[in-house]
Write a protein that binds this DNA or RNA. Structure first.
Length: 390
RNA sequence: GGGCAGGUGGCGGAGUGGUCAAUCGCACCAGACUGUAAAUCUGGCGACCUUCGGUCUUCGGUGGUUCGAAUCCAUCCCUGCCCA
């Protein structure tokens, strides 16, 4: 369907660093990803409530898909026949597919975990399925994602140290198996695919260090940090991020999975993270939360009923150029579909602006300064509300 | 004029002698949401007291019966439908 030039290309260029913060470019057959970058989450082959053309307009350079969900529905057959996930959903830029490891964790009552893999029951029809590290590579070959993720076990928080250790050992063995299957198989649709490993180890530095070292020895094209932002305090998350990024090679992209709030993202960029994904801008948006340069607002609050300003004066999204807070609040309260779309597009636009502004700042050697100012700004809305209440 | 059915918290609508400040839904007011089983979930929603809890005034009006009434009786007012 698309005429890509297959070059077998995947590389990461570190363009500039300021302290540990990095600006770089990931090159893939389907396009470049300028880091730090935020990846909108499109679990089921769609970023909920957002059109593909809107993703292009807001400057999304890569989106996520989910192996677990797409395998269950519509199924690998449909996607292979469509010519891969890109063709199926008509998204020609890069896609990263998560392995389903997070579903094993979040749908934990469905799992049966052993050395071989994980047995789970479909949340759709209760049928039983098994994911193995190899099987998940095969599925992602069929999906045709540009960046594939290894199957891992995402441990909950809090997590017993011994369990975290054993779980991590299993995740490491799975990573080696995934790597092997990856080497033995080829892309199906003419574009290079690459495989990222996932560092686990819960909140235990020594396990995290071991995990990172072992995975680096296996030499992946990129490294993710998983098992964070699962309920632990933010400073624990930052500390673990520091621990892990200290070990990961500078020449490979680092992806902090599932993070996070705008503040989390800035703090993590400062610690050397290049890639992020999170459902927060879309899910919370659908639930009435809007992110702005001066903090988050819950548009359902009565305070906005007569607020005829845009959500964010400086935002370039369609909603902010066109509608007022009062009108959008009305749409949300009235359960209008447009509200879901406007919220999702706005929040993603904001997140993409945030990471691109961070990137600009790093390239200009003023990230530190810009970041502290931004962190301050991000709490003004909340302060305003609190002031009004008292 | 007669017959029937009704009048319950912002609305709809349960309850038909004590466990009722009163089920539930909506509306309203807040909160939550971090590799999406989420256009979802949780809490609040008569007044007052600082919370556990407690106090007070409520179920059309008035007056009764009763240890005790939203629930029973009388009467008045109002609403809907039917007959004249």
């Amino acid at each position: 369907m698309f005429d890509y030039f297959y070059s077998g290309l995947f590389d990461f260029t570190l363009q500039h660093s300021e302290g540990k913060a990095r600006a770089g470019v990931i090159r893939t057959d389907r396009g470049e990803i300028r880091t730090p970058m935020f990846m909108p989450v499109g679990t089921q082959g769609t970023v909920k409530a957002v059109e593909q053309r809107e993703l292009h307009e807001m400057g999304a350079e890569i989106i996520l898909g989910n192996t677990y969900h797409l395998y269950l529905r519509p199924g690998v057959d449909v996607i292979e026949n469509a010519g891969g996930l890109h063709a199926f959903m008509n998204w020609r830029k890069p896609i990263l597919t998560d392995s389903g490891g997070y579903q094993v964790f979040s749908l934990s009552d469905l799992r049966g975990l052993d050395e071989e893999g994980v047995v789970f029951k479909s949340h759709l029809d209760g049928s039983e399925h098994k994911f193995t590290p190899e099987g998940v590579i095969d599925i992602q070959r069929s999906l045709g994602s540009d960046i594939m993720m290894v199957l891992d076990e995402c441990t909950p928080y809090p997590c017993d140290e011994e369990y975290a250790r054993q779980s991590n050992e299993l995740t490491l063995r799975w990573a080696a198996r995934a790597r092997e299957r990856f080497e033995q198989t080829r892309p199906l649709y003419g574009c290079e695919q690459t495989l990222f490993a996932i560092v686990q180890g819960s909140t235990y530095s020594w396990i995290r260090e071991r995990s990172a070292r072992k995975l680096v020895e296996m030499d992946f094209e990129g490294y993710a940090i998983g098992g964070l932002s699962v309920g632990e305090p933010a400073d624990v998350m930052y500390a673990i991020t520091d621990t892990v990024t200290a070990i990961l090679p500078e020449t490979k992209p680092r992806y902090l999975m599932g993070v996070g709030t705008p503040e989390n993202i800035l703090e993590s960029i400062e610690r050397g993270i290049d890639l992020f994904d999170c459902v927060m801008p879309t899910r919370n948006g659908r639930n009435g939360m809007f992110f702005t340069r001066s903090g988050r607002i819950n548009i359902k609050n009565a305070a906005y009923a007569l607020d005829f300003r845009p959500i964010d004066e400086q935002c370039t999204c369609y909603g902010c150029r066109t509608f007022t807070r009062a009108y959008i609040r009305h749409l949300v309260k009235a359960n209008e579909i447009l509200a879901l779309q406007l919220a999702s597009v706005h929040n993603l636009t904001f997140y993409l602006w945030l990471v691109s502004a961070a990137r600009e700042a790093i390239l200009a050697e003023r990230f530190q300064e810009w970041k502290s100012e931004m962190i301050k700004q991000l709490s003004t809305e909340i302060q305003t509300i609190e002031t009004n209440v008292t």
